[in-house]
């Protein structure tokens, strides 16, 4: 009889197991973590690399802000992660890959030059070129309108002018 009773109690014991036990674990670990979060010292060259990487990554909880300029929790954790990886001798691509593997290319402030994102890079230039072409064409049309189709400025009144007819008539009469 005991075996079925124990079998019946087992799920309850498993459910209750984490509860009511000692509560020091997480607090002790928090104290250890606090000491582990001492500043990570880098060489000047490494500092420069870390700063460049911080400027290239977007803060996940901000709006289009780099982790270098953000003071959010996550930005600070990301800066620390970058510094730790730089100190460990990881390359720039490896560090960026760590973040893109978790957040996708969205985490990059400047999208990578591949696939669909080429549109984002090329579109501003295309818009400027199209705008320039539009202004050029409009300017040419306006100047043609005032100069005539040939582009030369006509001298004197147009041939079919009523004033010219009248002038010629009066000259003939005076003769």
């Amino acid at each position: 009889m005991k075996a079925p009773v124990l079998a019946g109690l087992l799920p309850l014991l498993l459910v209750a197991a984490p509860v009511g036990a000692q509560q020091r674990g997480a607090d002790d670990a928090a104290a250890v973590a606090a000491t582990e979060r001492a500043p990570i010292s880098l060489t000047p060259a490494q500092e420069e690399r870390a700063r460049e990487l911080e400027g290239a990554l977007k803060c996940p909880v901000c709006r289009s802000q780099s982790i270098r300029s953000s003071d959010s929790f996550m930005a600070k954790d990301m800066r620390r992660k970058i510094r730790a990886m730089v100190a460990a001798g990881r390359g720039d691509q490896e560090i960026v890959a760590y973040f893109t593997a978790r957040y996708g290319d969205w985490i990059l402030l400047a999208p990578p030059k591949r696939g669909f994102t080429w549109i984002g890079w090329l579109l501003p230039f295309a818009v400027v070129l199209a705008g320039g072409a539009g202004v050029f064409l409009a300017a040419r049309r306006w100047t043609r309108g005032s100069r005539g189709e040939s582009g030369e400025v006509p001298i004197g009144p147009p041939p079919e002018s009523p004033y010219l007819d009248r002038l010629e008539r009066e000259l003939e009469e005076s003769e």
Binding site: P18, V19, Q22, G25, D28, A30
Partner: peptide
């Protein structure tokens, strides 16, 4: 670390 036990 677990809140409810002195373990990880």
């Amino acid at each position: 670390p677990l809140y409810a036990a002195d373990s990880t």
